[in-house]
Amino acid sequence: MTTVRDGLERLGEILDFAWKVISRVLSGRVLAFAGESIRQAGILISGSVGVIILLVFALGLQCGIQGAYGTQSIGAPSIAGAFTAVCNLREVTPYAFGYMMAAKVGTGIVAELGAMRISDEIDALEVMGFDAITYLGATRLLGYMIVLPFVFIVAIGVGFLGSYVAVVWQFGRVSSAAYLEIFWVFQTPLDMVFSLVKGMSMSAFVILVGCYFGYNASGGPVGVGTATARSMAVNIVGIHAIGLLSTQLFWGSDPRSPVGG
C-alpha cells in the first residue's frame, strides 16, 4: 500500500508543480523572459528535431510495410493507402513523437535543470530575485509549445514519406497515383487537428514532467541520473495513458472513414 500512496503523492506533487508552471505562462509573467523562451525554442530546433524526425521516419516505413503486406494478404495491395493513412496520421506519428520527445527533450530538461539544482544555481537565481520556476520552467514550456506544432506537422509529413517509400518504391505492387488517391481519401483536416492535439498533449506532459524532476533533483550527480531515469518511467506511463484516452475520445465513437453511408 505504501507504494500506491507514494505514487499518488508523487502524482499530486507533479500536478501541483505543473500548475505552477502553466499558470506562469497563462498569466503572462513568462513574457518578462521572452528572449529566454525564444532561445530555448532555438535550442529545440537545432538540437532535437533531427532525431525526432528520424524515429518518425523509421516507424513510417514500418507502417508502410505492414500496410503493404497486410493488404496484399487479402488480395488488394492497391488499398495499402487506407492502412497507412490511419496508421501514420492517427497513431504511430503521435506515439513516435511522444517517445522521442520523452527520450530527447524530457530527459534533456531533467539533466540540465538537475545539474543546475545540485550545483546550487537555482538557489542563486532565487537569491538574485529571479522566480526560478518562471525563468527555467515556464520559458521552456512557452518556447517549446510555440515551435512544436510546426515540428509535429513536419513529422506527420515525414511519416507519410516513410510509408510512401515503403509501399510504392520498396514493395512496388501499387502505382504512385493509385496509392495516393486512397491515401488522401482516408484522411481529413479534422483528423490532422485531432492528431495534433494528441501529439501536443503528450509533448506538454513530457515537458512538465521533465521540469518537475529536474527542478526537484537532489543527491549530487548520482541523483541527477536517477531523476532522469525516473522521469522516463513516468513519461512512458503518461504517454500511453494520453494516447489511449485521446484515441477513444476522437475516434472511439466515429471511425471517420469514407466507407458506407
Partner: peptide
C-alpha cells in the same frame, strides 16, 4: 554535475532510434 543525466539522455535516444 550533468554527466550521468546526460549519459541517460543519450542512452535512451540511441536505444529508441536503434529499436525503430
Amino acid at each position: 554535475a550533468a554527466g550521468v543525466g546526460r549519459a541517460v539522455n543519450q542512452a535512451v535516444v540511441l536505444t529508441f532510434l536503434a529499436i525503430g
